[in-house]
Design a binder for these strands. Sequence first.
DNA 1: CCCTGATTCGC
DNA 2: GCGAATCAGG
Length: 230
Amino acid sequence: MSWTDERIATLKKMWEGGATASQIAEELGGVSRNAVIGKAHRLGLKSRPSPVKANEKKKAAAKKPAAKSTAAAKKPAAKSTAKPAAKPAAKPEAPAAKPAPAQAGNTNSQPMPNPTPDLPKIVSVGPGGFLRQGPGDQQAPIPPAPPRRLVPAKPSPEIADKTSLLDLSDKVCRWPMGHPGEPDFHFCGDAVNPGFPYCVEHCGRAYQAQLPRGARRPPPPLPFGGPRVR
DNA sequence: CCCTGATTCGC
DNA sequence: GCGAATCAGG
């Protein structure tokens, strides 16, 4: 797998959205957690509460023993049962107040940056009267805020009234709301625009007006890379 | 053990 | 530039 623009975009979104490297890697597919982290750093975006950063106090004690100077042992076979014996053992640290990391209300509440600067509004009317949006019109699907942890998914009263997979039929809009696997994932469920799998409103999002040749723009980034590939 | 991100460094 | 291996904190 290579880092296409879209994959990088997804990586950025999710990384900035607070998703863990593992989650991002899973979403992207075909890459490891390390690959994601490595790429994230190369892209410049880094930091974010890392468990292993509270350091930076005194000297850089106990660096890396035999990290990787030369062709050193990659995998030192045995973890050497010999422990360094000597242990300073001393930490008169001052408590030092630690204010909340302001990482709280992370429930993603972006003030909605900029819908779309100024692009030629290209709209056409589709069957049933829905308006096809132009490529520049793609509303940022703002699905962010991926759950910190995907749980097995409990039925959850959240979707009690919503259209589940089992409720789909030819008569209701199959537009997915959310992502599969998320607790509140469901479908639109509105009456379909006859002849389409979606309601009129979602037809407008599903089908785009065709631009004249030569005026094509690269496809707008999908929410999170679109369909999961697995 | 599991998880996390950070870093290194051969490719 | 990429990412496995490794490190290190929770």
